[in-house]
Structure formats: C-alpha cells, structure tokens
C-alpha cells in the first residue's frame, strides 16, 4: 500500500488534489481511498488530506501517520511545529514540494506550482498541478488518466469550463516536468495505537470547560496571512474605520487613538485596506 499525505492551506486545493490522485489511481485499476482532515480551520489555515493506494482492497482508515509520500503545498508550513509535515515520513519516502528552484534531488521533487498556476490559471490554486506532479513522481498513473481525473474532480467542485481547460494545461505541464521516481510500497500496516480506556468521570472533569475566556489570541492566526496590511501613519487620521471593520479585532487603538495592527493574529483579509477612506493602508508581502 502507498500512503500519501498532503499538507497545505485552506483554499490551495489540498483536498481536491487528494481526490485527483485517488481517482487517477483508480482509473489505472488500483484500489484507492482519499479523505480530508476534518477540522474547523478556514481559508489560509493549515489543512491536510490523505490518500491510500493499493492493488488490494483498502481496509485501513483514518489519518496517515507514517506516509510513503508527503506533498507540501506551502513552504511556510515546513517550519511550523504544529503541522510538522514530514512527521513519520518513511525512510526513502518521497517529498513533492511546491517551491522553486525546480528540480529533483534524490527523493525530493521541487516544482514551482504556484508560479505556474498564477501564469496559466490566473490564481494560486495548485490542486491540479500538485496532483499531476505527484502522480508522475510516483508512477501510478498515465497522463491521460491524470487529466481525466483532474477534469472530473474540478467539475465536481463547480469550476467553470474555461478554468477547467486552463487547469488541464497546467496539469499536463507539471506532469511532463517531473521524472518518474517510482516508489516501493510497503506491506507493513501502520503502527497500531493501543486503545485508551476512558473511565466515567463527573461532568466537571469530563466536560470541556474553558475556564479562561478570550484566550484565542494565543493561537496566532497571523500565519494564515497571504498579504500584510501596513498603515502609513503619516496619512492616518485616526478615523477608526479600520478598527470598526476588522472582523478579528486584530486592530486596536493605542493611547493616542491610533490604530495598531496585531500581526500575530491578523489573517490578512485586507478589509482595512479596502475601507480606509484616505488610502493610508498598503498591501505588502505576508
């Protein structure tokens, strides 16, 4: 069985890429299964999805803790301790990463899918690109079946015709850029975790009581940002518009009534930029 784990950010196409890889393998006659991480985090937040591919029926379920292949959609996740994308990657496992400079070294494949997607599709959604590169690197599917899977899955998520066509061109390009590494699959099952016995506990122990209110700033959602709003204080008139409209209360007023952005938690929605009546907010790299 081949186990593939994909790490990306909400909105990049991590889940859809898993579905494409899974369908492409199925079209080649493999058994395949794919599932996304279930979680509450949103666009820009770290997400993951999982694919299992096998010649036999896939009976294994759940998250993949020891993948043969890791597909990394966003370089910034590599340094995140909370995500730790390479965790459990098996020896001689393959990494397919969305980053430049492009090339293949040993079992690490780098492809600048984001730049290619921006050029060919016009937006940074790399589901088709990363899925095609992965299918090629693993040698699990011929290009025609990869393209067929891309088309089916992108139509499924409601992409318009012209966007599907652009993504097909992108997928074909990425497929051709990557060498077929081939990966030896592993027969051994994933390590089993012993079941923990949960004893009866009174409600004040067993209920998830949060005794500290308003503590979510500790979560540091600033990592979700794809753009950074920057206030030009030489123009700012302290009109409070950005403060009122910041959905996340990530802009507060200092003692002089000037707006201050909490970059630890600003998600980069850029409403402050759009609403600033005197255009004192600019957009910079995250």
């Amino acid at each position: 069985m081949l186990r593939v784990r994909l790490h990306g950010r909400g909105g990049q196409g991590t889940k859809t890429a898993g579905s494409i890889i899974s369908l492409a393998a199925t079209l080649e006659g493999y058994h395949a299964q794919d599932s996304p991480m279930y979680g509450p985090e949103r666009r820009g937040a770290p997400v993951a999805s999982f694919v299992r591919i096998s010649r036999d029926q896939v009976n294994e379920r759940g998250y993949i803790t020891s993948p043969d292949v890791v597909v990394l959609f966003d370089r910034s996740l590599a340094s995140s301790k909370a995500v730790d994308p390479l965790a459990g990657l098996r020896k001689a496992g393959v990494l397919v990463a969305n980053e430049g400079p492009e090339g293949t070294e040993g079992s690490v494949v780098r492809i600048d899918a984001s730049s290619r997607a921006r050029r060919l599709v016009g937006r940074d959604n790399v589901s088709a690109a990363m899925a095609a590169a992965t299918c090629r690197a693993l040698g699990i599917s011929r290009v025609e079946n990869v393209l067929s899977a891309v088309e089916t899955e992108l139509r499924e998520v409601g992409l318009a015709d012209q966007d599907v066509q652009k993504n097909l061109a992108l997928a074909e390009e990425c497929y051709s850029l990557v060498p077929a590494l081939g990966v030896r699959d592993q027969d051994s099952p994933e390590a089993e975790h012993a079941l923990a016995e949960v004893r009866y506990a009174p409600h004040y122990v067993s209920t998830s009581l949060i005794m500290s209110t308003g503590n979510s700033p500790q979560k540091k959602t600033g990592g979700w940002r794809t753009s950074r709003p920057v206030i030009d204080y030489s123009k700012c008139t302290n009109c409070m518009v950005c403060f009122v409209y910041c959905p996340d209360s990530a802009i507060h007023l200092d003692a002089d009534g000037a707006p201050r952005i909490d970059y630890d938690n600003c998600k980069g929605c850029m409403i402050c930029l759009t609403e600033c009546p005197i255009r004192a907010v600019s957009e910079e790299a995250p």
């Binding site: 979510s216 409070m240 996340d248 209360s249 909490d262």
Partner: peptide, 21 residues
C-alpha cells in the same frame, strides 16, 4: 463611528475565515 466603544469582547485568533462579515 467614532462613538464605537473601544473595548473588545470578541478577540483575535478565532478559527473563522478571513473577512467574515
């Protein structure tokens, strides 16, 4: 809008999408 109370009861770090109305 200047009369909007400065004190926040909803704080940052929520799991909601960027730009949630």
């Amino acid at each position: 809008m200047k009369d909007t109370p400065a004190r926040e009861y909803l704080v940052s770090g929520s799991p909601l999408c960027p730009g949630c109305g």
